[in-house]
Design a binder for these strands. Structure first.
Lengths: 226, 226
DNA sequence: ACCTTGATGAACTACGTGTGAACCCGGCCG
DNA sequence: CGGCCGGGTTCACACGTAGTTCATCAAGGT
């Protein structure tokens, strides 16, 4: 079995013993660069990220792992219960989490379930919203069946918006979550990409992306129920 | 939001408090027949099944819920760590599990993530006051179900007032708390915004915002108690 | 009846967004 | 090595909308 990626290095002792007990091989890393450098031939089997010691670093690591050509899955977060609240706006960064301190057997059971889930392709490889379809595996988009020729950033932006239909995002949120890093300066960059997206969605569907003045942008209609 | 299906009935006290704290409605059932019988119009939002007291019954319930024309999702298992091993051959019966005893916040976080994963968005954060509904995520407002087209400041002002129903605010308070900075000059600005708000709330609801002469404005009915 | 306070309508101003074009950078190919 | 090209970022400007101010009128209170 390919090893699991573990952050940080060194990992908490409880984690290493849990992993060896369960029989999972792993490699710990300090930075995302290192993760890329020592990546095994056949890729990682998954990742375990400790959120507590260094939330910033952990979040950055998750973003990095998710943003590659082939997003790393599954990604498990380890977190103390008092940090749970800070996960909410980051649902897309992980597949499951496990509370610290570790309970006997829990991590193993979660990993087993996680591998079972991802192995059977339970995760949706398509995002659909009305006439719009995004194929996450092939990085293609289509509207009304007609394929859209999107650039990388356009695709990423559209994907992010389409996975949170109805919700409003400020330019800063979009920059940090789609572009993936903290930003100075060009908030207008978002505008330009939005414009080009609207242009590529045909005239009739340009309204899929609405601007909320003085706030940001919203994809699709709002949800009043559910 | 549709209620969650909970098994068994009565559920453990810790579970009921966790659900009510998190604000999720639920209905507890004893048998799968009962689950079918009292199923809401729009189906269940998901299911929570306690595995411990009656493993056989719990497993049977899960199988039943998964076997319908429209398999119930998401399905969360509640289980003590000493029963973890018995889950292994039943991976397909649940989407996530949560260890007993419950840790503060964990169940809520898991449900949130689960709903996010399975595509039903997390329930939107709403402010409701009588016929008025403000959706904080989408920056939209509605009255009597009819959407209101508010500008940014109008929305902010209404939101501030609606979060403190019954309380009177002077123009200066509103300026400093809604506009957000100390102000010279135009206290009448508030008047204008109030006027436009009243205009956009229909004639019948204009009285939601009352003027308190020589003091300021109040949203909703005054409170004599509390 | 007088004075104070709020409502109204309209003009003025400023800010936010859309848009076109320039710029920058890395990869590709002659 | 150098020019080209595609994609991303930045800039400047125009336009429309939203926010503010002002003058006037109506209403309330004493």
């Amino acid at each position: 079995m390919e090893p699991l990626l573990v952050f940080p290095d060194p990992p908490p002792p409880a984690l290493t013993t849990a992993l060896t007990d369960a029989g999972y091989p792993y490699r710990a890393v300090t930075t995302s660069d290192e993760a890329t450098r020592i990546e095994p031939e056949d890729g990682w089997a998954g990742a375990l990220v400790c959120f507590d010691d260094d939330p910033e670093g952990a979040a950055a690591m998750c973003r990095h792992l998710r943003k590659r050509d082939l997003p790393l899955e599954p990604l498990m977060l380890l977190v103390h219960s008092n940090h749970l609240a800070s996960l909410e706006p980051r649902e897309d960064l992980f597949d499951d989490f496990c509370l610290l301190p570790l309970q006997p057997g829990e991590l193993e059971a979660r990993l087993k379930h996680l591998f079972w889930r991802t192995g059977r392709g339970t995760r949706p490889e398509l995002i659909e919203y009305g006439p719009l379809v995004l194929n996450l595996e092939t990085y293609q988009a289509a509207i009304d069946g007609r394929p859209l020729d999107l650039t990388y950033m356009e695709y990423e932006l559209l994907r992010f918006l389409a996975t949170h239909p109805g919700k409003v995002f400020t330019r800063e949120m979009l920059l940090s979550r789609v572009w993936g890093y903290e930003y100075y300066g060009g908030a207008r960059t978002v505008d330009v990409h939005i414009r080009r997206l609207r242009a590529k969605l045909s005239e009739e569907h340009a309204a899929l992306i609405q601007t909320v003045r003085s706030v940001g942008y919203r994809f699709g209609q709002s949800r009043w129920g559910l």
